[in-house]
Simulated scan of single mutants.
Amino acid sequence: MKLLIIGGGVFLGRAIAAEALRRGHEVTTFNRGRSGEDLPGVAAVRGDREVSADLDRLVDGEWWDAVIDVCGFTPRVVLDSVRRLSGHVGHYTFISSISAYADFGEKPGIDESFARFECPPDADADYGDYGVLKAGCERAVEEHFDGPVLVIQPGLILGPHENVGRLPWWLTRIARGGRAPAPGSRVVAPGDPERPIQLIDARDIAAFTLDKVAESTTGRFLTGGVPGRETYGSWLRECVEVTGSDAELVWIDDAFLIDHGVGQWTELPLWSTSDDVWATSSAKALAAGLTCRPMSQTVRDTWEWLKDIPEERRSFGVRNLRHGIDPDKEAHVLAEWSASAHE
Rank of each mutant, 00 (worst) to 15 (best):
H161M: 03
D69Q: 14
V187A: 02
A247R: 07
A66Q: 11
D146H: 10
I309S: 05
V78R: 04
H144A: 11
E26L: 12
S340G: 03
Y92P: 14
D276W: 13
D56G: 12
R84M: 06
I252Q: 09
G33E: 06
R49Y: 11
I174R: 13
H144G: 00
T217C: 14
L3K: 04
A341Y: 13
N320I: 01
A18N: 07
A125L: 01
D259I: 00
P160R: 10
G261D: 13
A44C: 08
R300G: 02
D48C: 09
P75A: 12
L334E: 02
D253A: 15
D122C: 05
V51I: 15
T209C: 15
E304P: 00
Q153S: 02
D308F: 05
G147F: 07
W337L: 03
T29K: 10
A115M: 03
V27A: 01
P193W: 01
L167T: 02
W265A: 01
A207Y: 07
T243C: 13
G8A: 04
C292L: 08
A44I: 02
W251E: 03
I95E: 07
D60V: 06
Y127T: 00
L4M: 03
G24H: 03
E267D: 11
P310N: 06
W251N: 04
S96T: 14
L171I: 13
D124Q: 06
V299T: 05
G324M: 08
Q198R: 12
P183R: 07
G8I: 06
H144L: 00
K2Q: 12
W278A: 08
D60W: 08
Y92N: 11
E112H: 07
C239S: 10
I68A: 04
E194M: 05
E304C: 01
M295P: 00
A206Y: 09
P120A: 11
E143W: 09
L321C: 05
F11C: 10
L150K: 06
Y232I: 08
A180T: 15
